[in-house]
Structures are given as structure tokens and as C-alpha cells.
Amino acid sequence: MILLKTSGLSKTFGGLKALSDIDFSISSGEIASLIGPNGAGKTTFFNLLTGVYKPDAGEIDFCGERIDGRPPYWITKRGLARTFQNIRLFNNMTVLENVMVGRHCRTRSELFTALLRTPGFFREEKEIAESAMERLRFVGLLDDGNELAKNLPYGAQRKLEIARALATEPKLLLLDEPSAGMNHAESLEMAQLIQRISKEGITILLIEHRMSLVMKISQNVHVLDHGFKIAEGTPDHIQNHPKVIEAYLGSTQETPEITIDARG
């Protein structure tokens, strides 16, 4: 079953065509990767899906519903969550509070219940804290719950962003370079985490520069270059695709395996 589908998706910044006519689809339960050289338009694609930018042309269908042109909170509530290439946490809130904010779109209490401290308010607060802790346990950060987010080491911050995104109960999780800046051991751990999330029934699309990770965990790979989609297919297929090799190396020279690791 197709979970998300775009057709003819385009976005221009000033004179720059960041994305041109992108047809893309991802099925439920899949782990897919989006790769491409720097500036190819990968993050822009995520920004269009999550409602940060409105597409200039094209459609986005998610669970059989048009989501293009909708505001981000609406899209998040439908079940699309993401992380950011440059980590964006609520730095001066605690680790637990960060994840609790993720529960916002699944809970309701506002001014009056908070002022009157109704039984419903306490029930909901308890639910928020408990399910936030559950997400922290899932990513392995439960012991750091009371730290301020910004005091966490880098790798843990990436996990915290994922926990916050998971707290919104996504059907589709978009990860923007989850292993960027990590060493080999950490990136292996990240790969395992992604596979565990997938086992929970969450579909995953990740942008990744680290080819070993892409090839290891993804079922499908989509390749962008200069805003165009130049290839898609299984990791094996992509690895030997002449256009992909050209895009990465800037020449038609045959190379047996892509070893580009642009981002550490």
C-alpha cells in the first residue's frame, strides 16, 4: 500500500530550481533512502512534505489525502514527523520536556483545564509524561530525562530529536542525515535504532550521505541531482547505475562502487 506519493513536485528559490517535477512514492512499512550530492534538493523535499514551504507545482498525497499547502501542525497530526539536518532541539528545556512537547498534537488540554486542574488535566499530564518516558526508553535516553537538551552529547541529541518525532505518533518518519557527524560505532547503533523503529510499523524515509548505512538498511533508494530525480531502485541497482555514479563523480567514468562520504 502506498503511504505517500508526490507527482510533479517542483520548488524554485528565486532563479534556482531546487526541485523539478519530482514523482516519488513510498509504501507502508518500507525503509527508503533519499541520496544525492550536496545541494541536490533533499532537505527541500522534506521541507515541502512537512509544509515548511508550499510547492510551486505538483501534489503530495499522504494516506489518500492531499497535504500540500497545509500548515505543518496539520501535517504532523496526520502522521508525518521529521528530524532536522542541523539538530533543532528545545535547548533550554529538559530532555523529557522536549519529548513531552511531541505529545502536543495528540493531547488537548488548554487554558481552562490547566487553570482549574480538572481530573482530566491530571490524567492527560500523566499520559503525556508516561508516553514521553516510553519514547526515551526506546531510544535509550531515559536516564538523561532531567538534563537540559543542550547538555547532551551530539549523538544523544540526534536520538532525542528522533524520540520527540516518535512522540507525535507518526506513520511516516523523515530523518535528515541521522548519522551525520557520528563515528562508525555510533552510526551502526543509529542503523539499529532505525530498524527497530521500522519494526514498530513506522515507515521511514531517510536522507543519508553514508552509503554503507543506506545500502545496509534501505529497501529502496531514490537519487536526486540538481533538483531532478535521476534514479530509483534497490540498493544494488542504484550502486551500479551509471547516472548515479556520474552525479557523484561529475564524470561518466565507470566506478565499481560508490564510496562517497561527503558528510563524515
Partner: peptide, 30 residues
């Protein structure tokens, strides 16, 4: 009243907005 509101879903949303408006929006805050 202020204390109660700040220690609630609303207060956390306000803090999140102050900390990073973009991340707050994309975490589902209206």
C-alpha cells in the same frame, strides 16, 4: 494561575515556541 498554566501543555508549547519556533511548528504545535 500563571504557575498552573506554565506547568501544563500550554506552558510547554510556549516555551518550545520561544526556544525554536520552526521546530515547534514541525513538532505539531499550532
Amino acid at each position: 494561575m500563571t504557575r498552573r498554566v506554565l506547568n501544563s501543555r500550554m506552558g510547554r508549547a510556549w516555551m518550545a515556541i520561544r526556544e525554536d519556533e520552526v521546530a515547534a511548528r514541525l513538532t505539531g504545535i499550532e
